[in-house]
């Protein structure tokens, strides 16, 4: 039988995802994301693993290079790929928010200046959000340390993920609006989901049992 390939995100979510797959009986051996190897296989569970950068996971899955993947909802929203979202793992809980400097007088989105500049790792999400509120903004794509942008005058606001809001506060920023809560999701290639329906459905059910607590207590 052809092994199923699952793309896992290196970094923040990795350890928790591995633990869940292990408990669900889909991972017999130890793997870690420090490994220089990017492709691993586990004969006991019949799974192949791709270790990828989180933002690349939806791409591997959309093209069918991986049948399954695990990735944050924030990345899914930004990448907007044609993939099936099978399961909320309830992991890595955070929120996508609009944040501005604490000193600004902005109380709500409506105070935001016309053609204000918004810096983000999530330009699509940010653009869609402001557009849906009828606010025209200029988007600036950044790749990291987004909190810096308002402080140095690069942008009037940022769109980023936050879990406790602590990093934002430390950088003198406050939340102006919440866009959406985000957790990790199990995703599948649409054709794999059809052709390998029984195996993928079984895997999703087994994982679901492990994460039910996560989703309920959220």
């Amino acid at each position: 039988m052809r092994p199923l390939t699952i793309a896992l995100p290196k970094g923040r979510l990795f350890k928790d995802v591995i633990a869940i797959l292990h408990k669900a009986g889909y991972l017999g051996k130890k793997i870690d994301d420090d490994s220089r190897r990017l492709l691993l296989s586990d004969e006991s569970s019949g799974l192949n693993f791709i270790l990828a950068k989180p933002t690349d996971v939806p791409t591997y899955v959309e093209y069918g290079a991986a049948d399954l993947g695990v990735v944050g909802k924030d990345v899914l929203l930004e990448e907007a790929k044609d993939v099936c979202e099978l399961l909320d793992l309830g992991l890595g809980g955070c929120r996508l928010v609009v944040a501005v400097r604490q000193e600004t007088g902005f109380q709500s989105l409506q105070d935001f200046p016309l053609n204000g500049r918004v810096a983000s790792k999530y330009p699509r999400v940010a653009g869609d959000f402001f557009l849906s509120h009828g606010i025209q903004v200029d988007l600036i794509k950044l790749h990291g340390s987004i909190e810096l942008a308002p402080i140095v005058g690069l942008a009037d606001a940022i769109v980023d993920i936050t879990s406790t809001g602590e990093t934002l506060r430390q950088n003198g920023l406050k939340i102006l609006a919440e866009i959406t809560p985000c957790t990790a999701r199990l995703i599948a290639n649409p054709v794999s989901f059809k052709i390998e329906f029984d195996r993928i459905h079984r895997l999703a059910q087994a994982v679901r049992k492990q994460v039910q607590g996560n989703v309920l207590t959220r």
């Binding site: 959309e62 649409p190 054709v191 794999s192």
Partner: peptide, 9 residues
């Protein structure tokens, strides 16, 4: 219709 060779219909 689809084939396992390709990720789309």
């Amino acid at each position: 219709g689809y084939s396992k060779e390709l990720g789309y219909d």
